[in-house]
Design a protein around this nucleic acid. Structure first.
Length: 397
RNA sequence: GGGGAUAUGGCAGAGUGGACAAAUGCAUCAGACUGUAAAUCUGACGGCGCAAGCCUACGGUGGUUCGAAUCCAUCUAUCCCCA
């Protein structure tokens, strides 16, 4: 492997990054890697607490790809053991523990999603259960002696919880220490994460030092805001775009963000081609382009075209979309509510549906439904719209 | 180990015996306006019933009472102070 010049590498690495700590050491590492022709080991860890990675994670994955293209070794760490504890970062409550089965399942879906971005080369996938299952208690005690409680309590999220009188379990204190120990095992030269991972990643340096090994460099990517534009993107807050979201949903979610947020997304996700976006002055068109670009990236251009088209019929033209397949429904002895419940596959309760009718939120064949007395005839076809995003096509038999 | 406090709907947080399906805010959903933007305004926001109403719900269990989120006992969990 022929590396490019270290200062050139640094320039590329520094794009769209919040911080490198400490930067001068990174230069040294790059130089020695260059001289000895040995790739750097770049670690990034993910806890399989949910089955999906989202656009926020993609910032880290993209940067990993940069390292990959520069010829370095990616150590993709799946925290299947630590997931059982739950990273307390940014939390105001203890996480509920997860079942092994769920964790395993999530971990396996991660790989598929990761390779939507990364190439299948120079990647090691590591599971930390490998070294933590069967980790000796005396080792653990030795490990815990390397960090003190006061320092842990200085961490912003712990501090807030402590001051607010919220519970912090000892297990949660253990989390950063275990994550740090991962770096010892992985022998990472670099660890990447969001800026909220600052503490954990820097603790990795400290623990590596205690193990008398070279210390890793922390590289911090910016945090992507969630769809609400307030909190960071996360599954728990349900403000995320998953890498696995179906194309149409992905596109729809992009369209729902505010203009301000759109600019931020463009800046963070497509910093290298922001001119391309900024040429388009009309915000609606720019947002569509953003949605299209994102869908194309995780799927392909035809899917992106299709989802844009569906979006436009559904919402801009308020037409009934063409991709809904017709469902046959038995008519006998059912009243309107029964039918609506059946059609929507129990997505709504009867009370909810009644409210929708009162609010004029249900349309049948383009007419707003105003009473419960309306009933279909046999062989009749209905196109039903409930709220703004639920469409059904029915034939009664 | 001792003492004190707290537990309410997705979250935050009122409510101290009937007027409580439980104020208010956030979140959510719908309608209006739009670019399904955002902001704003209006309404809804446990379930079942066309409705009167019924059922389920204020940490768990058991009691007092005609009646309990509210009182008592007990259990559980969390926090604080002392040791």
């Amino acid at each position: 492997m022929q590396f490019i010049k270290p200062n050139k590498q640094l320039e590329i690495i520094k794009q769209n990054i919040d911080a490198i700590i400490p930067e001068d050491e990174l230069i040294k590492k790059l130089e020695s890697s260059y001289e000895n022709n040995v790739p750097l080991r770049v670690k990034a860890g993910f806890d399989p607490t949910t089955s999906h990675l989202h656009l926020g994670h993609s910032l880290i994955l993209r940067k990993l790809k940069v390292f990959q293209e520069l010829g370095h070794q990616i150590c993709f760490l799946i925290g299947d053991f630590t997931a059982k504890i739950g990273d307390p970062t940014g939390r105001d409550k203890t996480r509920p523990p997860l079942d092994q089965e769920v964790i395993d399942n999530n971990a396996s879906t991660y790989k598929d999603q990761v390779f939507k971005i990364l190439k299948d080369e120079n990647v090691e996938i590591l599971y930390n259960s490998k070294w933590f299952n069967g980790f000796d208690l005396s080792n653990l005690i030795q490990l815990t002696s390397l960090e003190n409680v006061a320092r842990l309590l200085e961490r912003d999220d712990f501090k807030k919880r402590y001051q607010a009188g919220e519970a912090i379990t000892v297990t949660e204190f253990l989390y950063p220490i275990l994550q740090a120990y991962d770096s010892v095992v992985v022998k990472s030269d670099i660890e990447m994460g969001g800026t909220d991972q600052m503490f954990n990643i820097l603790l990795g340096r400290q623990i590596q030092k205690a193990f008398e090994m070279p210390q890793q460099i922390g590289i911090f990517v910016p945090i992507l805001e969630g769809l609400d534009g307030k909190m960071k993107m996360s599954k728990t807050l349900d403000n995320h775009i998953e890498l696995n979201d179906p194309p149409e949903e992905m596109f729809g979610k992009v369209m729902s963000i505010s203009d301000d947020l759109m600019s931020k997304y463009i800046k963070l996700l497509y910093f290298d081609r922001s001119d391309f976006f900024n040429e388009i002055l009309d915000p609606l068109d720019r947002k569509k382009l953003l949605g299209h670009t994102i869908v194309s990236e995780y799927y392909d251009a035809p899917s992106a075209d299709l989802s844009q088209e569906l979006f436009e019929t559904k919402f801009s033209k308020k037409d009934f979309p063409g991709d809904i397949s017709e469902v046959q429904i038995q008519l006998k002895d059912k009243n309107l509510l029964d039918l609506l419940v059946e059609i929507s596959e129990n997505s709504f309760s009867r009370s909810e549906l009644k409210r929708f009718i009162k609010d004029k939120a249900i349309e049948i064949n383009r007419n707003k439904l105003t009473s419960l007395d309306y009933l279909p005839e046999e062989e009749e076809k209905w196109e039903i719209k409930i709220g703004k995003r639920n469409f059904y096509k029915i034939k009664f038999v």
